[in-house]
Computed example of a mutant assay.
Amino acid sequence: MTRFEPGTRIAAPVPLVFGLSLDVDAHTASMARSGERAVAGVTTGTVALGDTVTWRARHFGVVWRMASRITAYDHPTHCVDEQTAGPFHHWWHAHHFTPDGRGGTLMRDEIDFPAPPGPLGRLAERTVPDRYMPRLIRERNEHLRRVAEAGGAPGSGADRG
Rank of each mutant, 00 (worst) to 15 (best):
M1A: 10
R3F: 07
R3D: 05
E5D: 12
P6W: 02
A11G: 08
V14F: 02
V14P: 02
G19E: 09
L20R: 09
L22A: 13
V24Q: 00
H27E: 13
A29D: 08
S30I: 00
S30V: 04
M31A: 14
E36C: 14
A38M: 06
A40T: 01
G41T: 04
V42G: 00
T43E: 02
T44Q: 08
L49W: 03
T52D: 03
V53F: 01
T54S: 07
R56A: 13
R58Q: 06
H59T: 13
F60K: 13
G61T: 10
R65W: 00
S68L: 14
I70G: 09
T71A: 12
T84K: 06
A85F: 01
P87C: 07
R102F: 01
G104M: 11
R108L: 15
R108T: 15
R108V: 15
D109P: 10
D109M: 05
E110L: 14
F113K: 06
P114H: 09
A115L: 12
P119D: 02
A124W: 04
R126F: 03
T127G: 04
T127N: 06
V128Q: 06
Y132F: 14
Y132R: 09
R135G: 10
R135I: 03
I137G: 10
R138D: 09
R138K: 09
R140H: 00
N141F: 05
E142G: 11
H143I: 04
H143T: 01
L144C: 05
R146L: 15
A148I: 07
E149Y: 03
P154E: 02
G161A: 11
